[in-house]
Protein backbone atom coordinates (compact mmCIF):
# COMPACT_ATOMS: atom_id res chain seq x y z
CA UNK A 1 0.00 0.00 0.00
CA UNK A 2 2.58 2.54 -0.98
CA UNK A 3 3.59 4.58 -3.92
CA UNK A 4 2.08 2.19 -6.41
CA UNK A 5 -1.30 2.34 -4.75
CA UNK A 6 -1.34 6.13 -4.82
CA UNK A 7 -0.18 6.12 -8.40
CA UNK A 8 -2.49 3.52 -9.88
CA UNK A 9 -5.40 2.90 -7.55
CA UNK A 10 -6.10 5.95 -5.41
CA UNK A 11 -7.52 8.25 -8.06
CA UNK A 12 -9.66 5.63 -9.85
CA UNK A 13 -11.11 4.52 -6.52
CA UNK A 14 -11.88 8.10 -5.52
CA UNK A 15 -13.44 8.87 -8.89
CA UNK A 16 -15.48 5.68 -8.68
CA UNK A 17 -16.63 6.62 -5.17
CA UNK A 18 -17.65 10.13 -6.10
CA UNK A 19 -19.44 8.88 -9.22
CA UNK A 20 -21.29 6.19 -7.30
CA UNK A 21 -22.33 8.56 -4.52
CA UNK A 22 -23.38 11.32 -6.93
CA UNK A 23 -25.68 8.85 -8.66
CA UNK A 24 -26.96 7.17 -5.49
CA UNK A 25 -28.15 10.46 -3.96
CA UNK A 26 -30.83 11.33 -6.53
CA UNK A 27 -31.39 7.59 -6.96
CA UNK A 28 -32.94 7.47 -3.48
CA UNK A 29 -35.74 9.79 -4.51
CA UNK A 30 -36.15 8.25 -7.95
CA UNK A 31 -36.75 4.88 -6.31
CA UNK A 32 -39.24 6.23 -3.80
CA UNK A 33 -41.10 7.98 -6.61
CA UNK A 34 -41.19 4.78 -8.68
CA UNK A 35 -39.10 6.55 -11.28
CA UNK A 36 -36.04 4.34 -11.08
CA UNK A 37 -36.09 3.77 -14.80
CA UNK A 38 -35.60 7.46 -15.52
CA UNK A 39 -32.02 6.64 -14.55
CA UNK A 40 -32.00 3.92 -17.18
CA UNK A 41 -33.35 6.29 -19.81
CA UNK A 42 -30.89 9.06 -18.95
CA UNK A 43 -27.89 6.78 -19.14
CA UNK A 44 -28.93 5.59 -22.59
CA UNK A 45 -29.36 9.05 -24.07
CA UNK A 46 -25.93 10.13 -22.91
CA UNK A 47 -24.41 8.50 -26.01
CA UNK A 48 -26.33 10.53 -28.62
CA UNK A 49 -25.61 13.60 -26.50
CA UNK A 50 -21.85 13.18 -26.61
CA UNK A 51 -21.93 12.37 -30.30
CA UNK A 52 -23.79 15.60 -31.05
CA UNK A 53 -21.48 17.47 -28.68
CA UNK A 54 -18.52 16.07 -30.59
CA UNK A 55 -19.99 16.84 -34.00
CA UNK A 56 -20.83 20.41 -33.07
CA UNK A 57 -17.55 21.23 -31.37
CA UNK A 58 -15.26 18.97 -33.35
CA UNK A 59 -13.27 18.06 -30.25
CA UNK A 60 -13.44 15.26 -27.75
CA UNK A 61 -13.00 17.70 -24.87
CA UNK A 62 -15.10 17.08 -21.80
CA UNK A 63 -16.90 20.44 -21.91
CA UNK A 64 -18.82 20.28 -25.18
CA UNK A 65 -19.47 16.56 -24.86
CA UNK A 66 -20.81 17.03 -21.35
CA UNK A 67 -23.04 19.84 -22.57
CA UNK A 68 -24.29 17.63 -25.36
CA UNK A 69 -25.07 14.85 -22.92
CA UNK A 70 -26.89 17.20 -20.55
CA UNK A 71 -28.86 18.59 -23.47
CA UNK A 72 -29.80 15.09 -24.60
CA UNK A 73 -30.99 14.22 -21.09
CA UNK A 74 -33.17 17.33 -21.08
CA UNK A 75 -34.60 16.55 -24.49
CA UNK A 76 -35.32 12.98 -23.40
CA UNK A 77 -37.10 14.05 -20.22
CA UNK A 78 -39.25 16.56 -22.07
CA UNK A 79 -40.10 14.06 -24.80
CA UNK A 80 -41.00 11.35 -22.29
CA UNK A 81 -43.27 13.73 -20.42
CA UNK A 82 -44.88 14.96 -23.65
CA UNK A 83 -45.56 11.45 -24.94
CA UNK A 84 -46.87 10.41 -21.55
CA UNK A 85 -49.18 13.37 -21.21
CA UNK A 86 -50.36 14.11 -24.74
CA UNK A 87 -50.20 10.57 -26.07
CA UNK A 88 -51.56 9.00 -22.87
CA UNK A 89 -48.84 6.34 -23.05
CA UNK A 90 -47.85 4.70 -19.78
CA UNK A 91 -44.53 6.02 -18.41
CA UNK A 92 -42.47 2.86 -18.89
CA UNK A 93 -43.42 2.57 -22.53
CA UNK A 94 -42.90 6.30 -23.11
CA UNK A 95 -39.38 5.95 -21.72
CA UNK A 96 -38.74 2.88 -23.84
CA UNK A 97 -39.80 4.68 -27.00
CA UNK A 98 -37.70 7.76 -26.30
CA UNK A 99 -34.45 6.28 -25.12
CA UNK A 100 -34.20 3.57 -27.75
CA UNK A 101 -34.93 6.07 -30.50
CA UNK A 102 -32.35 8.55 -29.24
CA UNK A 103 -29.79 5.81 -28.70
CA UNK A 104 -30.38 4.51 -32.21
CA UNK A 105 -29.99 8.01 -33.62
CA UNK A 106 -26.73 8.37 -31.69
CA UNK A 107 -25.30 5.13 -33.05
CA UNK A 108 -26.33 6.05 -36.58
CA UNK A 109 -24.72 9.50 -36.29
CA UNK A 110 -21.58 7.89 -34.97
CA UNK A 111 -21.39 5.50 -37.92
CA UNK A 112 -22.33 8.08 -40.51
CA UNK A 113 -19.78 10.68 -39.53
CA UNK A 114 -16.99 8.24 -38.94
CA UNK A 115 -16.40 9.67 -35.51
CA UNK A 116 -16.13 6.05 -34.46
CA UNK A 117 -12.52 6.30 -35.54
CA UNK A 118 -11.79 9.28 -33.34
CA UNK A 119 -11.58 7.53 -30.02
CA UNK A 120 -15.26 7.90 -29.48
CA UNK A 121 -16.66 4.47 -29.47
CA UNK A 122 -19.82 2.99 -28.14
CA UNK A 123 -18.10 0.48 -25.91
CA UNK A 124 -16.22 3.27 -24.22
CA UNK A 125 -19.44 5.08 -23.43
CA UNK A 126 -20.98 1.87 -22.12
CA UNK A 127 -18.07 0.59 -20.11
CA UNK A 128 -15.96 3.62 -19.18
CA UNK A 129 -12.23 3.75 -18.65
CA UNK A 130 -11.86 4.03 -14.93
CA UNK A 131 -8.61 2.04 -14.99
CA UNK A 132 -6.89 4.67 -17.08
CA UNK A 133 -7.56 7.58 -14.74
CA UNK A 134 -4.31 7.12 -12.89
CA UNK A 135 -2.08 9.67 -11.19
CA UNK A 136 1.23 9.06 -12.91
CA UNK A 137 3.17 11.89 -11.30
CA UNK A 138 2.42 10.73 -7.79
CA UNK A 139 5.31 9.17 -5.97
CA UNK A 140 3.57 8.18 -2.77
CA UNK A 141 1.26 9.48 -0.07
CA UNK A 142 3.48 12.56 0.23
CA UNK A 143 2.27 13.67 -3.19
CA UNK A 144 -1.04 14.55 -1.58
CA UNK A 145 0.64 17.59 -0.06
CA UNK A 146 2.82 18.38 -3.05
CA UNK A 147 1.24 21.15 -5.17
CA UNK A 148 3.21 20.20 -8.27
CA UNK A 149 1.98 16.63 -8.14
CA UNK A 150 -1.54 17.67 -7.20
CA UNK A 151 -1.70 19.80 -10.31
CA UNK A 152 -1.37 16.64 -12.37
CA UNK A 153 -4.35 14.90 -10.81
CA UNK A 154 -6.65 13.58 -13.53
CA UNK A 155 -9.22 16.32 -14.28
CA UNK A 156 -12.00 13.72 -14.00
CA UNK A 157 -11.36 13.58 -10.25
CA UNK A 158 -11.97 17.29 -9.77
CA UNK A 159 -14.98 17.22 -12.04
CA UNK A 160 -16.55 14.23 -10.32
CA UNK A 161 -15.89 15.61 -6.84
CA UNK A 162 -17.44 18.89 -7.86
CA UNK A 163 -20.53 17.20 -9.31
CA UNK A 164 -20.88 15.13 -6.16
CA UNK A 165 -20.64 18.25 -4.00
CA UNK A 166 -23.19 20.16 -6.09
CA UNK A 167 -25.69 17.32 -5.94
CA UNK A 168 -25.17 16.88 -2.21
CA UNK A 169 -25.76 20.59 -1.74
CA UNK A 170 -28.95 20.52 -3.78
CA UNK A 171 -30.35 17.51 -1.95
CA UNK A 172 -29.60 19.12 1.42
CA UNK A 173 -31.06 22.47 0.37
CA UNK A 174 -34.31 20.99 -0.90
CA UNK A 175 -34.50 18.12 1.56
CA UNK A 176 -37.87 19.03 3.09
CA UNK A 177 -39.48 19.74 -0.23
CA UNK A 178 -38.17 16.53 -1.74
CA UNK A 179 -39.35 14.50 1.20
CA UNK A 180 -42.83 15.92 1.33
CA UNK A 181 -43.41 16.02 -2.44
CA UNK A 182 -42.18 12.45 -2.79
CA UNK A 183 -44.42 11.20 0.00
CA UNK A 184 -47.59 13.16 -0.67
CA UNK A 185 -47.67 15.23 -3.82
CA UNK A 186 -51.22 16.55 -3.37
CA UNK A 187 -50.46 17.78 0.14
CA UNK A 188 -47.20 19.34 -1.06
CA UNK A 189 -49.11 21.23 -3.74
CA UNK A 190 -51.62 22.49 -1.20
CA UNK A 191 -48.66 23.94 0.74
CA UNK A 192 -47.55 25.76 -2.39
CA UNK A 193 -44.51 23.60 -3.13
CA UNK A 194 -43.84 23.66 -6.90
CA UNK A 195 -43.86 19.88 -7.24
CA UNK A 196 -43.62 19.91 -11.02
CA UNK A 197 -40.46 22.02 -11.01
CA UNK A 198 -39.08 19.99 -8.12
CA UNK A 199 -39.57 16.70 -9.99
CA UNK A 200 -37.94 18.19 -13.05
CA UNK A 201 -35.05 19.46 -10.94
CA UNK A 202 -34.54 16.00 -9.49
CA UNK A 203 -34.28 14.51 -12.96
CA UNK A 204 -31.84 17.26 -13.96
CA UNK A 205 -29.70 16.46 -10.92
CA UNK A 206 -29.75 12.81 -11.92
CA UNK A 207 -28.74 13.80 -15.44
CA UNK A 208 -25.91 15.90 -14.04
CA UNK A 209 -24.66 12.91 -12.07
CA UNK A 210 -24.94 10.63 -15.09
CA UNK A 211 -23.13 13.03 -17.39
CA UNK A 212 -20.30 13.64 -14.95
CA UNK A 213 -19.96 9.95 -14.20
CA UNK A 214 -20.27 8.21 -17.52
CA UNK A 215 -17.03 9.51 -19.06
CA UNK A 216 -15.06 7.87 -16.31
CA UNK A 217 -17.16 4.88 -15.43
CA UNK A 218 -19.45 4.26 -18.39
CA UNK A 219 -23.20 4.21 -18.50
CA UNK A 220 -23.77 0.72 -17.07
CA UNK A 221 -22.24 1.74 -13.80
CA UNK A 222 -24.47 4.80 -13.86
CA UNK A 223 -27.65 2.69 -14.04
CA UNK A 224 -26.46 0.29 -11.37
CA UNK A 225 -25.48 3.15 -9.04
CA UNK A 226 -28.74 5.01 -9.49
CA UNK A 227 -30.60 1.98 -8.31
CA UNK A 228 -28.65 -0.67 -6.38
CA UNK A 229 -27.28 1.31 -3.41
CA UNK A 230 -30.56 3.16 -2.68
CA UNK A 231 -32.58 -0.03 -3.18
CA UNK A 232 -30.35 -1.91 -0.77
CA UNK A 233 -30.50 1.02 1.65
CA UNK A 234 -34.31 0.98 1.58
CA UNK A 235 -34.17 -2.57 2.91
CA UNK A 236 -31.98 -1.53 5.84
CA UNK A 237 -34.10 1.16 7.47
CA UNK A 238 -37.48 2.85 7.70
CA UNK A 239 -36.13 6.37 7.99
CA UNK A 240 -35.40 8.50 4.98
CA UNK A 241 -32.33 10.11 6.53
CA UNK A 242 -30.74 6.78 7.39
CA UNK A 243 -31.71 5.39 4.00
CA UNK A 244 -29.76 8.13 2.24
CA UNK A 245 -26.76 7.58 4.55
CA UNK A 246 -26.81 3.83 3.95
CA UNK A 247 -27.02 4.37 0.21
CA UNK A 248 -23.92 6.57 0.28
CA UNK A 249 -22.08 3.95 2.29
CA UNK A 250 -23.12 1.17 -0.09
CA UNK A 251 -22.11 3.28 -3.08
CA UNK A 252 -18.66 3.93 -1.63
CA UNK A 253 -18.19 0.27 -0.67
CA UNK A 254 -19.20 -0.86 -4.15
CA UNK A 255 -16.65 1.45 -5.71
CA UNK A 256 -13.81 0.41 -3.41
CA UNK A 257 -14.40 -3.34 -3.47
CA UNK A 258 -15.37 -3.35 -7.14
CA UNK A 259 -12.18 -1.62 -8.16
CA UNK A 260 -9.98 -3.77 -5.97
CA UNK A 261 -11.65 -6.99 -7.12
CA UNK A 262 -11.38 -5.99 -10.76
CA UNK A 263 -7.73 -5.10 -10.40
CA UNK A 264 -6.49 -7.85 -8.13
CA UNK A 265 -9.15 -10.55 -8.27
CA UNK A 266 -7.94 -12.13 -11.51
CA UNK A 267 -4.36 -12.10 -10.19
CA UNK A 268 -5.45 -13.97 -7.08
CA UNK A 269 -7.14 -16.51 -9.33
CA UNK A 270 -4.00 -16.90 -11.42
CA UNK A 271 -5.03 -14.65 -14.27
CA UNK A 272 -2.76 -12.01 -15.68
CA UNK A 273 -5.03 -9.14 -16.61
CA UNK A 274 -7.46 -7.01 -14.74
CA UNK A 275 -11.12 -7.06 -15.73
CA UNK A 276 -13.46 -4.11 -16.24
CA UNK A 277 -13.60 -2.06 -13.05
CA UNK A 278 -16.90 -0.39 -13.93
CA UNK A 279 -18.50 -3.77 -14.56
CA UNK A 280 -17.12 -5.16 -11.32
CA UNK A 281 -18.39 -2.18 -9.33
CA UNK A 282 -21.86 -2.83 -10.73
CA UNK A 283 -21.54 -6.51 -9.78
CA UNK A 284 -20.49 -5.66 -6.22
CA UNK A 285 -23.43 -3.27 -5.86
CA UNK A 286 -25.66 -6.12 -7.02
CA UNK A 287 -24.16 -8.45 -4.42
CA UNK A 288 -24.81 -5.84 -1.73
CA UNK A 289 -28.41 -5.53 -2.91
CA UNK A 290 -28.77 -9.32 -2.88
CA UNK A 291 -27.47 -9.48 0.70
CA UNK A 292 -29.80 -6.70 1.78
CA UNK A 293 -32.72 -8.50 0.14
CA UNK A 294 -31.83 -11.65 2.08
CA UNK A 295 -30.88 -10.13 5.43
CA UNK A 296 -31.89 -6.46 5.55
CA UNK A 297 -33.90 -5.72 8.69
CA UNK A 298 -36.59 -3.80 6.77
CA UNK A 299 -36.63 -5.95 3.66
CA UNK A 300 -40.33 -6.79 3.93
CA UNK A 301 -43.09 -4.39 3.09
CA UNK A 302 -45.87 -3.48 5.47
CA UNK A 303 -48.45 -5.72 3.82
CA UNK A 304 -46.96 -8.71 5.64
CA UNK A 305 -48.25 -7.36 8.95
Amino acid sequence: MGAEFVQFSLTPILIGMFAAMACALPGNFLILRRQALIGDAISHVVLPGIVVGFLVSGTIAAGPMGLGAAGAALVAVVLIEAIRRFGRVEPGAAMGVVFTTMFAAGVLLLEQTGSAQVHLDVEHALMGNLEQLIWLRASGWASLTDPAALATLPPELTRMALACAVITGLVLAFWRWLKIATFDEGFAQSLGIPTGALGFGLVIAAALAAVAAFQAVGSILVIAMFICPPAAARLMTNSLTSQVCWSLLFAALSAIFGYVLAGYGPLWLGGQHAVSAAGMIAVVSGIILGLAALLGPCRKGAQAI
Binding site: I180, D184, G186, N238, S239
Partner: peptide
Amino acid sequence: SVDWDFPTTALEVVQMGQYRRAGLW
Protein backbone atom coordinates in the same frame (compact mmCIF):
# COMPACT_ATOMS: atom_id res chain seq x y z
CA SER B 1 -53.24 8.72 -2.91
CA VAL B 2 -50.07 8.15 -0.92
CA ASP B 3 -47.32 5.54 -0.86
CA TRP B 4 -47.53 4.22 2.70
CA ASP B 5 -44.33 2.27 2.23
CA PHE B 6 -42.42 5.55 2.37
CA PRO B 7 -39.57 5.44 4.90
CA THR B 8 -40.92 7.78 7.55
CA THR B 9 -42.62 7.70 10.94
CA ALA B 10 -46.01 8.93 12.09
CA LEU B 11 -44.42 11.84 13.96
CA GLU B 12 -42.41 12.87 10.90
CA VAL B 13 -45.58 12.91 8.82
CA VAL B 14 -47.25 15.19 11.35
CA GLN B 15 -44.21 17.46 11.33
CA MET B 16 -44.67 17.86 7.57
CA GLY B 17 -47.62 20.00 8.60
CA GLN B 18 -45.17 22.40 10.23
CA TYR B 19 -42.89 22.71 7.18
CA ARG B 20 -44.75 25.69 5.83
CA ARG B 21 -44.15 27.71 8.96
CA ALA B 22 -40.58 26.45 9.35
CA GLY B 23 -39.78 27.12 5.69
CA LEU B 24 -37.26 25.26 3.62
CA TRP B 25 -34.39 25.51 6.06
